[in-house]
Lab assay of single mutants.
Amino acid sequence: MEVRTIKVFTTVDNINLHTQVVDMSMTYGQQFGPTYLDGADVTKIKPHNSHEGKTFYVLPNDDTLRVEAFEYYHTTDPSFLGRYMSALNHTKKWKYPQVNGLTSIKWADNNCYLATALLTLQQIELKFNPPALQDAYYRARAGEAANFCALILAYCNKTVGELGDVRETMSYLFQHANLDSCKRVLNVVCKTCGQQQTTLKGVEAVMYMGTLSYEQFKKGVQIPCTCGKQATKYLVQQESPFVMMSAPPAQYELKHGTFTCASEYTGNYQCGHYKHITSKETLYCIDGALLTKSSEYKGPITDVFYKENSYTTTIK
């Protein structure tokens, strides 16, 4: 009895394709271990004539594949690729409408935090270190965002349907971005203890939790000093293409032309909904596939993004 075979390709990165001759009487799992086709788990399936010449994702289970996976995804987590594939199996079914010149995501599976993050990423200057993220990001900007969303979920250790947080998501993504040249110098002034300067680099240099107003941050924000008295913390120097200011959701007025974009969060910790506000020729609110415009805006804002380049204080 002759062994019926077909020729397929296996890959971990969709760049390096490895030619395989597979036995049609055995499952993919018996031949390769966990195997995925377009995100779908085909591990328990036997090869079919229609699979001839198709590319299958496999887990990096030998040295060659491990090197290829690390170079593309910059992670050695053995569960990463499987999590990416199972997320992709959902995100490829989502709709990605162009809204006001940006790629958004039609609401499904509690994905409003991903839509808000995706919209924000198209408006701030950011370059990702893992080629996987950078490639998928370019495709997302062009309207094909399924891979990018699935990668975000995998890097953030999230599953489809789980509630997510924009600030946490951005923080994970910033860790995989090139923020080497970003720098922030802060000064804390206390009447009792004097003053202390701190220099922050990388992710810490672009994120701040405690106030939404970048102007206020430049002037000074009140913080408790270690001595128990009130101290003032203010920005001395900022070198970065953008800054992200966050605070627990509270009524906040966004003035046209003073910011790049913002995240609105309605609801409580267990259950809520994100919308995205962007400042173009007027203010726009993007909620999944829905767009509304207004000249002014007041609502429960939790993150505001500002364009920056270089700032030095005039406070002496």
Results as ranks from 00 to 15, higher is better:
Thr312Ile: 09
Asp77Ala: 07
Leu102Arg: 04
Glu71Ile: 07
Met26Leu: 10
Asp180Tyr: 08
Phe32Arg: 07
Phe80Asp: 04
Ala117Thr: 08
Asn129Gln: 05
Ser50Tyr: 12
Gln30Ser: 09
Asp165Asn: 07
Gln238Val: 01
Cys149Phe: 02
Pro131Leu: 05
Ile6Lys: 10
Gln251Pro: 15
Ser279Ile: 00
Pro248Thr: 08
Lys298Val: 14
Leu102Asp: 03
Lys191Cys: 10
Glu162Val: 04
Ala150Ile: 01
Thr43Ala: 13
Val185Trp: 04
Pro224Gly: 10
Ser79Ala: 15
Gln270Phe: 15
Asn129Arg: 10
Leu37Glu: 10
Gly220Arg: 02
Cys271Tyr: 09
Met85Trp: 13
Thr169Tyr: 00
Asn268Gly: 15
Gln123Phe: 02
Thr75Gln: 10
Val8Asp: 05
Leu200Tyr: 15
Lys54Asp: 12
Glu52Ile: 14
Lys293Cys: 10
Lys158His: 05
Gln30Lys: 10
Lys280Gly: 13
Tyr172Ser: 10
Leu102Cys: 05
Gln30Asn: 06
Lys280Val: 07
Gly101Leu: 04
Tyr172Thr: 15
Ala231Ile: 03
Leu114Asn: 04
Lys298Phe: 10
Cys225Trp: 01
Leu118Tyr: 06
His90Val: 14
Thr11Met: 06
Ala177Phe: 02
Tyr269Gly: 09
Tyr306Trp: 03
Ala40Trp: 12
Glu215Gly: 06
Thr226Asn: 11
Phe32Asn: 08
Glu71Ala: 08
Gly164Val: 03
Ala108Asn: 07
Ala108Glu: 15
Tyr155Asn: 02
Asn111Gln: 04
Lys44Cys: 07
Asn89Ile: 06
Ile15Ala: 09
Pro130Glu: 05
Asn187Leu: 13
Cys285Met: 10
Ala115Leu: 04
Glu264Ala: 10
Glu71Arg: 14
Asn16Asp: 06
Thr198Met: 14
Gln123Ser: 06
Asn14Thr: 08
Lys93Leu: 13
Gly202Thr: 02
His176Ile: 06
Gln270His: 14
Asn178Thr: 07
Lys293Gly: 07
Tyr274Asn: 00
Ser181Trp: 15
Asn61Glu: 15
Lys54Phe: 14
Tyr137Gly: 04
Pro224Val: 14
Thr260Asp: 02
Asn89Gly: 12
Tyr274Thr: 00
Ala262Tyr: 00
Ile301His: 00
Gly194Asp: 05
Thr312Pro: 09
Asn61Phe: 15
Ala115Lys: 02
Tyr214His: 02
Leu163Gln: 06
Val243His: 02
Asp303Thr: 01
Ala289Trp: 05
Met26Tyr: 11
Ile15Trp: 08
His51Thr: 04
Phe217Ser: 04
Lys191Arg: 15
Ser171Pro: 00
Val8Ile: 13
Asp63Tyr: 09
Cys112Ala: 03
Gln197Leu: 10
Tyr208Gln: 05
Gln270Arg: 12
Glu52Trp: 15
Asp135Ile: 10
Lys44Pro: 14
Ala205Asn: 00
His273Cys: 00
Glu264His: 04
Glu68Thr: 11
Leu212Arg: 02
Gln134Trp: 05
His276Pro: 04
Tyr274Cys: 00
Tyr297Thr: 01
Glu264Tyr: 04
Ala250Lys: 11
Gln123Leu: 04
His90Trp: 15
Ser181Ala: 10
Leu290Gln: 07
Ile277Ala: 02
Gly257Glu: 07
His74Val: 04
Cys156Val: 08
Tyr252Asn: 03
Ala250Asn: 13
Thr282Ala: 15
Ala154Pro: 00
Phe80Cys: 03
Ala142Gly: 13
Thr64Ser: 14
Gly82Lys: 07
Phe174Leu: 12
Arg66Tyr: 11
Ala115Tyr: 00
Ser294Trp: 13
Ala132Arg: 04
His74Tyr: 06
Lys54Val: 13
Glu308Gln: 07
Arg66Leu: 13
Phe305Gln: 01
Gly228Asp: 01
Val21Thr: 13
Gly194Tyr: 02
Arg83Asn: 14
Arg167Thr: 04
Gly53Ala: 13
Gln238Met: 00
Tyr84Arg: 03
Gly101Glu: 05
Asn187Lys: 09
Ala146Glu: 11
Val203Arg: 13
Thr192Asn: 13
Asp287Glu: 05
Val67Cys: 09
Ile45Ser: 14
Phe70Ala: 15
Gly220His: 02
Arg139Met: 12
Ala140Ile: 14
His48Leu: 14
Pro97Arg: 06
Leu153Thr: 04
Tyr265Leu: 02
Arg66Thr: 13
Val8Arg: 05
Thr10Gly: 07
